[in-house]
Design a protein around this nucleic acid. Structure first.
Lengths: 224, 224
DNA sequence: ACCTGAACACCGTTCAAGT
DNA sequence: ACCTGAACACCGTTCAAGT
């Protein structure tokens, strides 16, 4: 986007173009994101990003030790934003724990739809270095903790039966939402009877079904 | 695996090595699978496979129009095998529809664990050409049909409430099992409280929980 | 019919040298 | 401190030519 015009003559002093970019790290992240949007995570080329920014092929390696580090930095940003959006998806009107759980899941699904490239990067485990990124792990843990806590509250309040294992409930919620998000982005939903354009409605109805099933076996809920 | 010894002298007639492989297509699929096992689907290189088989870099392209076609052929084989295993996972002792649904899901999870490389290829949507492979679509549809039919039976028999949308039930089952399989292979389970080595037990317990939740709201089941 | 081998247009990454 | 530009060891793919 900030591609500078090439110097026209080879003998003149190259005064027109700043010697270094000043902000190459951030510019690389932005260019890489555009490439990911156009060609998917695999299609991100650090050479191509450098070319678009008018720097030499080696320049990016002053800012990222390797391609994987670039991808991981993108995933960190994505996952931080996802965490924020998921939190914001829970509105004050969602008064019961299960209503919050559903809102949380819906926020996740909506974010995956709205930020497909970023979502793909976060879940492209062979392109990023999850183990080497405390930030990435932290924002994933935050979503997990929110899920588990909400389920604990649902059990405490009698919305979900205490007979069910809390860890299994959390894992079930996460697996379902993650599976739905992937099926959505990978184009598997049409095969499951979802009409084109109906992805959002279908995934959210499925999420709602899970929440309803979780509530069904409960005993001491204050209201039905 | 069938790597022929290099001709020792350069002046002698190359009679020792057959001019062509005779079975290059199949050999490529096998070599590519080994590469996928070692480095993941992204690590599959057709040049490297050719090298290992002692053929020239261009040779594979007589058998596959491009790399994606090779990957798709691998996915076809994988998905045909997955379908068979899932069917075999349903034992005669699984008398009720929900018992069969659970067995089916367990078969899927076990296969994903036992054939990680193949499973990754089937679900690597940007490496394969799902739309251009009727075979791949067919075996995926077969698993889907089995899931949906089993759920219909569960509703007919009163094991699952007719109040729930059949399509949503099927999608919920699939999303859960797919999500669990991915989390398992991508190493996300430790973060969700699963101890190393406990992946099989945790995913299967989660599947069992889903089945239990589905049964909970039913009314007219013959037996509890 | 099947394969070779050279070529083309790409990669990621390193590193001396420049500013 | 930051970047260049050449180099290295790779890719996927094509295509004339060989057997």
């Amino acid at each position: 986007m900030v591609k500078p015009a090439k110097a026209s003559a080879s003998h003149a002093a190259p005064a027109a173009r700043a010697y270094h970019h000043g902000n190459l790290r951030q510019a690389l992240l932005e260019a890489a994101l555009v490439l990911a949007q156009q060609r998917g995570p695999e299609g991100v080329s650090v050479r191509e990003a450098a070319r678009q920014l008018g720097v030499s092929p080696g320049a990016p390696f002053r800012h990222f030790p390797n391609r994987r580090a670039l991808m991981t930095a993108m995933a960190e940003e994505a996952s931080a934003r996802l965490q924020i959006e998921v939190r914001k998806a829970i509105r004050p009107r969602d008064k019961t724990p299960l209503a919050r759980l559903r809102a949380l899941g819906r926020g996740y699904l909506q974010w995956a739809r709205a930020h497909e490239a970023h979502f793909r990067i976060v879940s492209a485990r062979d392109q990023i270095d999850l183990a080497g990124s405390p930030g990435l792990q932290a924002s994933m843990q935050a979503v997990r903790a929110l899920t588990e806590q909400t389920l604990h509250e649902a059990q405490a309040v009698g919305e979900v039966s205490l007979a069910h294992d809390a860890a299994a409930l959390a894992l079930l919620s996460r697996a379902t939402v993650y599976g739905l998000a992937r099926m959505q982005l990978d184009g598997h939903l049409p095969q499951w009877g979802v009409k084109p354009g109906g992805e959002a409605a279908a995934t959210e109805a499925t999420l709602a079904l899970l929440v309803k099933l979780m509530a069904a076996g409960a005993s001491g809920a204050p209201a039905a």
